[in-house]
Design a protein around this nucleic acid. Structure first.
Lengths: 231, 231
DNA sequence: CTCCATTAGTTACCTTGGTAACTTACTTGA
DNA sequence: TCAAGTAAGTTACCAAGGTAACTAATGGAG
């Protein structure tokens, strides 16, 4: 649980170049960032940054690395809500809410640098810059869209529908019937919130039904109708 | 699809008394509310206020009545995300987001008066009052908490667990082992996102297992361990 | 009060997918 | 390059719950 401490000056350039802080100059930002209002930390891969039900006292801005927001269900089952990386904000939707504890677990999936900022500091910046305020509101809003989308995804009742939903999304992004998987099958199963063995079984069934082909790192859509078809 | 049009003056007292607008006086609010920036509408019971995938151009403040936010899944299955009434805001989490279309359907479940306000009007008010800005941010944040909670709820894999989760929540609210149901069994099933017949079956099983008793309008918890126990 | 619509209850049948217990294939560090 | 750890594939077994097709009860409207 040891965390490395590092200097904000190494990251100040990266900060002002990102959308949220772009309305501040390097000097303004350093002036605003008073020692007591922020903390810069490095988390190793696999470290838990926030635990489900922990109280949220500050927001986290990811400067580099990657974190995964997961819902850990009773018997150890995992549902991955989203994966976030540089410039993403974690906890923005909690800090000003009525019920400010983490509803999910936040875990680093790579060596990650995080800037923890206090509620007061955010408020100060909102007052100083309308652009910041709007960006911050957008960050909160976007997170709620991610959650709503996830509800739509996990409301699909069969594994086959979940897989097709995933393929539709990736086909839209990758514009190719050969969908490259950049995650392991295990992570894929967690993303869908199902057992790995069940995913494997259903992929096989879909191959048998001539809908797809797949190997370790890609899925090929053989029947485009399943992707174009009604959700 | 006809909607009745009414005068803002009838509602101005109710408006300034609610938390969101409490930093404005009646006169200030009337001054801010320029004709082109808002619209007051009455919806009859069962009318669709916003359809899933419709673009969100304004936020809705419920002045009286009740609306239900529902996720309608393919074969007509319904999952009720939440029921909202006077003083609640709908669409706050969409208006400033990147992807501003409704992820759910909003439907009135009683005769409902709604104040539709434009994005610009909200921005004006955020700039005029820090308290308003914070309240508005809280409204967005709270909606994301509702969504996250719903994910936790629907991630429970068995109907029995969903029912127990519901009973836990209601026991916490009602502080009585006799849980009064203020909704029909049909609505209850929709809230859990399951078939009515399946709910009925599982309630019977739980009664057979001596965990609960139930009738048309209440469920009695017979074994409190199921409520206190690990989620 | 009666009729019609909505809500509730019931249950046989069958699909889906979780579980567990394996085997097999990768990958990475020493 | 070998060993160990991790990921992936496979499958028999079985519980959960969706489906559909009923019947029963309830509750307003006229």
């Amino acid at each position: 649980m040891e965390v490395e401490s590092i200097n904000i000056l190494n990251y100040i350039d990266a900060l002002v170049s990102q959308n949220l802080f772009s309305s501040f100059s390097k000097e303004e930002l350093l002036e605003i960032l008073k020692k007591e209002h922020y903390e810069l930390k490095i988390y190793e891969k696999g470290q838990i940054i926030h635990l489900q039900n922990e109280i949220c006292k500050e927001i986290d801005i990811i400067l580099e690395g990657q974190v995964s927001v997961q819902n850990i269900i009773e018997n150890g089952n995992v549902l991955t809500i989203g994966v976030f990386s540089a410039c993403d904000i974690i906890g923005a939707n909690l800090i000003y809410s009525n019920s400010n504890f983490y509803t999910m677990t936040v875990i680093s999936t790579a060596k990650t640098t995080v800037l923890h900022m206090s509620k007061e500091l955010i408020l100060t910046m909102c007052k100083k810059s309308e652009k910041f305020m709007l960006s911050f509101m957008q960050a909160i809003s976007d997170r709620s869209i991610v959650l709503a989308d996830k509800i739509n995804t996990i409301s699909l009742k069969t594994i086959r529908k979940s897989i097709i939903d995933f393929l539709k999304y990736e086909y839209y992004i990758q514009k190719d019937t050969v969908i490259k998987l950049n995650i392991s099958k295990k992570d894929f199963a967690e993303r869908l919130g199902i057992q790995r063995s069940s995913l494997s079984r259903e992929l096989n069934k879909m191959r048998r039904d001539n809908l797809i082909n797949f190997d370790a790192r890609s899925i090929t859509i053989k029947d485009l109708k399943i992707v174009i078809g009604i959700r």
